[in-house]
């Protein structure tokens, strides 16, 4: 059984659409059994329509920019509105999967805070969003998955990586989380080493540049510098009995890259 985790589309306020290649990947009817939308994705009826095409089983939790109620996406043409919950739980196979957009988790994105929430909700897997950064790790035998933003939309939060980071570094951080997922050891999912190096790099660079006369035109600005977000991404969870295989899809340089992590209960 396949569960699609999407989040932080921010269409149309901050992004126009999810990458076409994502759409093509997902536009296979009757393949995906369930869609979990992890916040900030309900201001686009077009996006919700798309989600409904992927699967009629849709679970949506409320992100900070979602309205309290939305048109019932499971029932096309209906005038009914449903309240968006802050938390939701999906039961699949031997797993209970918790969903939250993360905007009511304090401190934000904090693994221990998320662990406490997972415990409170009594779930094995916690899907969360709000960070625009794809992540997956295991903590206390629980599996934590953040599908990132499916559009790579702008985030007003601190940038996911430092301003000078190259997109390729995301790949590295993912490799690390993958390893973490398998070994189930380190409770700290952060990729702080990497970030440290990069921020150092940044400071040295700015040091050098002070000496040169620069104009606006000379400065190359990557999209990541402006959005603070990671590349567009989503996750697909393949749940079979007590095994959950996580596929991470990322849109890097107009290509879709896939990573795989396995979690067993």
């Amino acid at each position: 059984m396949l569960l699609l985790a999407l989040g932080d589309a921010h269409i149309p306020d901050r992004a126009i659409d999810i990458p076409l290649k994502f759409k093509k990947l997902l536009s296979i009817p009757d393949k995906i059994a369930h869609v979990a939308i992890l916040g900030n994705s309900t201001r686009s009826s077009e996006f919700l329509d798309f989600a409904r095409l992927v699967s009629s089983n849709i679970t949506i939790v409320r992100g900070e920019l979602d309205n309290a109620t939305i048109r019932d996406v499971t029932d096309e043409g209906s005038k009914a509105e449903v309240t968006l919950p802050v938390n939701a739980i999906i039961k699949q196979g031997q797993f209970k999967i918790g969903c939250c957009s993360g905007y009511n988790v304090v401190p934000k994105n904090d693994p221990l805070a998320l662990l406490a929430l997972a415990r409170q909700l009594d779930v094995d897997i916690l899907l969360w969003g709000g960070t625009h950064n794809v992540e997956a790790y295991t903590l206390e035998d629980k599996f934590f998955v953040n599908p990132g933003s499916c559009t790579g939309a702008l985030t007003t939060d601190w940038p996911v990586t430092s301003t000078l980071a190259q997109p390729s570094s995301d790949k590295a951080s993912l490799k690390e989380t993958e390893k973490l997922g398998k070994e189930k050891e380190d409770p700290q999912p952060d990729t702080s080493d990497k970030d440290m190096e990069e921020s150092e790099e940044k400071s040295t660079k700015t040091g050098q540049e002070e000496e040169r006369e620069l104009e606006e035109e000379d400065i190359e600005i990557s999209e990541f510098d402006l959005t603070g977000s990671n590349v567009p991404s989503f996750c697909l969870l393949d749940i079979q009995g007590n095994t959950c295989t996580l596929y991470i899809y990322m849109y890097i340089d107009n290509e879709v890259k896939v990573d795989k992590v396995v979690y067993e209960k």
């Binding site: 269409i11 149309p12 992004a15 309205n67 309290a68 109620t69 309240t83």
Partner: peptide
Amino acid sequence: EKQKISRENIDDLLSFDPNQEKLSKFIHI
């Protein structure tokens, strides 16, 4: 079943309008 509220009874102005959605997208373009 999910909690459903009929449109007449609530203020659903906040429900997104497809035209405005398009317009918003176009602003970026």
